[in-house]
């Protein structure tokens, strides 16, 4: 069955994602395993039968325990991975804020890295040239833009990465728990920028453990548990469920203690 509507920006239909917990990484290990009929190894389902859709301009949060499949969903939207089952559809330019400055080469200068990173994120040469000044302004790195990036502090590194990512004019923005970089002033700038994106109608998907962020920022929250979509509703409803879940987890430990 195919997804019908054209209006949705992101669509997941019965998506499953299997990982092999690898044992046979070299031929020496793989070939005997093949002969024994063992195949690769045990599959691990990071996601199972996940179906949802996100309309253009929505801001959706994803919460769940660690290992519940949140980052996997982001990677599927970003197109970094393909689903093992089902279909993923994400129209529009995706800009992932997943570990910023990925691909920054330590020996290249800030300027060169901006060009390269922007190119990786899909900007054309012309767009990069036009936005270069804005990018450096936002990151507040004019003094260091010509130094090799290996000399940057981790904060500077992230600010630059973040700045490039947000100036890439994304249609879909994926945020994976990285809104806490830099000092308070910079954080405020980032949040303001996020609000700007919302106003512009950018589709935003946020993964975070911060309930406060979800409630302030997202219109809708998806609750993941063990790779399955357990809830899809308002931030208030979902945070209740998430915290409930957390309580259930804590109690057994307390019992063991006593």
């Amino acid at each position: 069955m195919r997804i019908e509507s054209e209006a949705k920006e992101i669509e997941f239909w019965r998506v499953g994602k299997r990982f092999q917990l690898q044992e046979g990484r070299t031929l020496r290990e793989f070939v005997p395993a093949l002969f024994q009929g063992r195949g690769w190894s045990e599959p691990f389902y990071a996601l199972r039968d996940v179906t949802f859709s996100i309309a253009r301009g929505e801001t959706v949060g994803i919460i769940g325990r660690n290992g519940s499949g949140k980052s996997t969903i982001l990677k599927l939207i970003a197109g970094v991975m393909a689903p093992s089952e089902g279909e993923v559809r994400a129209a529009g330019r995706v800009s992932p804020l997943i570990e910023l400055g990925a691909g920054f080469h330590p020996d290249l200068t800030g300027r060169e890295n901006v060009y390269m990173n922007a190119c990786i994120l899909g900007m054309s040469g012309k767009e990069i040239r036009e936005r270069f000044d804005e990018i450096v302004d936002f990151a507040e790195l004019w003094d260091f833009i010509e130094t090799p990036v290996k000399r940057y502090s981790s904060g500077m590194y992230m600010r630059l990465g973040f700045s490039v990512a947000i100036h890439s004019n994304p249609e879909i923005l994926l945020v994976d728990e990285v809104l806490s970089v830099g000092d308070v002033a910079f954080q405020k700038k980032c949040l303001d920028k996020m609000h700007e994106f919302q106003a512009q109608g950018t589709t935003i998907v946020v993964v975070s453990h911060s309930m406060a962020l979800m409630q302030k920022f997202c219109q809708r929250v998806l609750f993941l548990e063990g790779g399955r979509l357990m809830g899809d509703g308002s931030p208030e409803e979902m945070s209740e469920r998430y915290l409930e879940d957390g309580e259930e987890m804590v109690t057994p430990l307390a019992e063991v203690r006593t």
């Binding site: 970003a78 197109g79 970094v80 995706v94 992932p96 990925a102 990786i120 899909g122």
Partner: peptide
Amino acid sequence: GASSLVTKVYF
């Protein structure tokens, strides 16, 4: 060698 890129962004 470019594993950090490949796992973060599609190109």
